[in-house]
Design a protein around this nucleic acid. Sequence first.
DNA 1: GAAATATCGTTCGTATACGAACGAGGACCA
DNA 2: TGGTCCTCGTTCGTATACGAACGATATTTC
Lengths: 151, 151
Amino acid sequence: MARPSTAAETPDLADESYDLAEQVGFIMRQAAQRHVSIFNEIMGADLTPTQWAVLARLYQDGGSSQNLLGRQTAMDAATIKGVVDRLLKRKLVQTKPDPEDGRRLIVELSPAGVDYTRELLPKAETVTKVTLAPLATNQRATLIALLKQLR
Amino acid sequence: MARPSTAAETPDLADESYDLAEQVGFIMRQAAQRHVSIFNEIMGADLTPTQWAVLARLYQDGGSSQNLLGRQTAMDAATIKGVVDRLLKRKLVQTKPDPEDGRRLIVELSPAGVDYTRELLPKAETVTKVTLAPLATNQRATLIALLKQLR
DNA sequence: GAAATATCGTTCGTATACGAACGAGGACCA
DNA sequence: TGGTCCTCGTTCGTATACGAACGATATTTC
């Protein structure tokens, strides 16, 4: 570790081992950035990864309450609200009150949303393929298995 | 894949293989979220991962121009500006014009920033340790090696 | 049945993240 | 010298991300 330009003292020898470029968090952030970049190129700039996650989840399993949908797509209540609002504005999604629970708002794909999602599915598969392209086949499974343990 | 609640038609059989929960991007986002959560717990809510990246980079290698600093910490010009501005407000960082290039703004740690960074280094190491805790030792090296290939 | 507790959706504030556009300064070449 | 192209820092707009607080509704507990 080099000495900081404005440091009067020498860094602790015990911490010489810390190298930002070798920390998982930093490397993971870069890998995620590359993935998002690939996503934007292939899927088009009009849909974000989180918006796609919501569409794909609704397509796979049908409607659910907004907060549950957020949990299923790894977003907290505040975040999922914004995502749903933007999908609502594009009429890819529709909402209705839950007759069984006055607190809940059921979110589901609109018919247009179903078509839209189905058309994008092949592209979404391509995103994963391109993201994993630098890895050998067996490495891809390894990476995914390891990442799953870090959730 | 289940049928979407509002779909009149059946999804294409060719796309039945797509499962959001198995896509690298989705899993990686969750792993990154857990990491940030660990970071916030250990480092305290008053410093973000990107801010730490800037401090650590400056501590390791000394000052540099703002844009170069952004490249070294994986942020574009617009993002690094905001991060530097917030660190400036806290006086952890200081800037000066580059005498050799009128376009450049040199960013470096303030003396207080050096102390602050040095004090946080052990905690930063802990963040990485806790993040990787679910993995066996040899798995950690594997994960990092694979992630590096995806940058 | 009423009180304590939990969940749901909403709003606010702050911090990345980045595309796009802009003016100022620098490098290069004819 | 002048023109072209590149880089630098800045600003704007949009979209996550999430802590915190809030009122409304459900559930639990006694």
